Amino acid sequence: MPARQRGSTVRRGKTWAARYRDAEGVQRLRGGFGSKTDARAWLDSRVDDVEALRRGDVAALRRRSLPTLAELVDEFTAQHVAEPSTIASLEFRLRYALEGPKLDGNAGWRDVTIDRLNATEIGAWRKALPGRSAFGIHKCLRQVLHYAVRAKLIDENPAALVPNPEPKRVEVKTFTIDELELAAAELSPTFRAVPVFAALTGLRPCEWMALERADVDRQAGVVTVRRTVVEGVVKPYGKTERSLRAVPLPARAAQALDEHPTRLDTRVLFPGARGAPQALSPWRHREWNPALRAAGLEHRSVYALRHTYASLSIAAGVSLFELSRLMGTSPAMLDKTYGHLLPDALDRARSALDVFIANAAEAAEGGG
């Protein structure tokens, strides 16, 4: 690699000019500087750029014109691979960083270059965020600034220096079987089987909405989860995804499907008016919320059906490992969400091991 050039400054009448060679070795001249100092400062900057290009260090050039936080957010979301609903949620949360904790344009960093963000200001911003949303909002900002670190735009992530404690766990709201029946009675006939079916299979709303009749094997007592609905668009699960799975179909859930009207113009198990799968948001407003009100039940989200499945399974003695496979999630996530429902887990594990060891000992003695 050639030695680093210095370039030169020359006086041209009443002004100064700077001369250097670009990355291809072509001589360049820039004049019109009011002083030799100005010419040298500009020249040093250009020489640094040339050296960075010769090294292939594009990041060094980018650091010379760092983006604002708004520009970084646009760049990050444009390259981030995720479902449209996830991107929309990410963009909404990042508005708190761009527009301020109250989304009023005050105390936001929209036009601030990312090198000017610091942990002290981010800490004060974190305290002013809405209580239960603060953890997720801060996490999104940290994610974006981590991208800037990986792109070598900044050396350190200032958001990672600020503590981001998770909110205290709230009680998971579930349904009793009687409440499921009450809610079902208030739904349209097309969706009357949903409360019992969803609460006894543990499927996510986006999963049971995408089910087709062929996914339900009545003889084997199994429901196969193959696809999901994202904003009304059906997407298949990949072969290696945890969510691609088979779950048992309990007798009561099968009974609910037996009473479920079948439409011959669509393969979808719970179709909308035109036969296609429903999108969650309009279904929630048109069917779910009115049904709960009509049944005189306390409001609970549609996801409470999935929570009901988890709580019933844990009460029945299903282990978190088994349950994680049935629900298409990780044991760690289940433990975080439902671990408090396992107060007697140690006793059950101890008793199970004692019985197993005792039976093994008896079998060994009998064989001897």
Rank of each mutant, 00 (worst) to 15 (best):
G7K: 07
G13E: 05
D22Q: 09
G25F: 01
V26P: 15
L29H: 11
K36I: 02
T37R: 15
A39Y: 11
A41C: 05
L43Y: 14
D44M: 05
R46S: 08
D48T: 13
V50E: 13
V50K: 13
A52I: 09
L53V: 07
R54Y: 14
R54F: 13
A59L: 02
A60C: 12
L69N: 06
E71Q: 12
E75C: 00
A78P: 10
H80G: 04
S85Y: 08
A88Q: 01
E91W: 04
R93G: 10
L94W: 05
A97T: 10
A97G: 12
E99S: 06
G100W: 13
L103F: 12
A107P: 08
G108H: 13
T113K: 08
D115N: 09
D115R: 06
D115A: 05
R116L: 06
A119M: 06
A119G: 13
I122Q: 03
G123R: 07
L129R: 08
P130L: 05
F135T: 02
H138Q: 07
K139M: 03
C140F: 03
A148D: 09
V149F: 09
A151M: 03
K152A: 15
N157P: 10
P158R: 04
P158W: 09
A159D: 07
R169H: 15
A183D: 07
L187V: 01
S188V: 03
S188D: 04
P189K: 03
T190A: 07
F191N: 01
F191P: 02
V196K: 03
V196G: 03
F197V: 03
A214N: 06
V216N: 07
R218V: 01
G221Y: 00
T224R: 04
V233H: 15
P236V: 04
T240K: 05
R242V: 14
A246G: 05
V247L: 00
P248C: 01
E259M: 00
P261K: 06
L264E: 10
D265I: 01
T266K: 04
L269A: 06
G272W: 11
A273F: 12
P277H: 12
A279N: 13
L280W: 14
H285A: 02
E287P: 15
A291P: 07
E298K: 09
R300G: 06
A304L: 00
H307G: 02
A310H: 11
I314Q: 00
I314K: 00
A315Q: 02
A315F: 09
A316H: 07
A316W: 07
V318G: 14
F321Q: 07
S324Q: 10
G328F: 15
S330Q: 13
S330D: 13
P331A: 06
K336M: 15
Y338L: 01
L342D: 09
D344I: 01
D347M: 02
R348P: 08
A349F: 07
A349S: 11
S351W: 10
A352S: 14
V355M: 12
I357E: 15
A363H: 14
G366Y: 12
G367F: 15
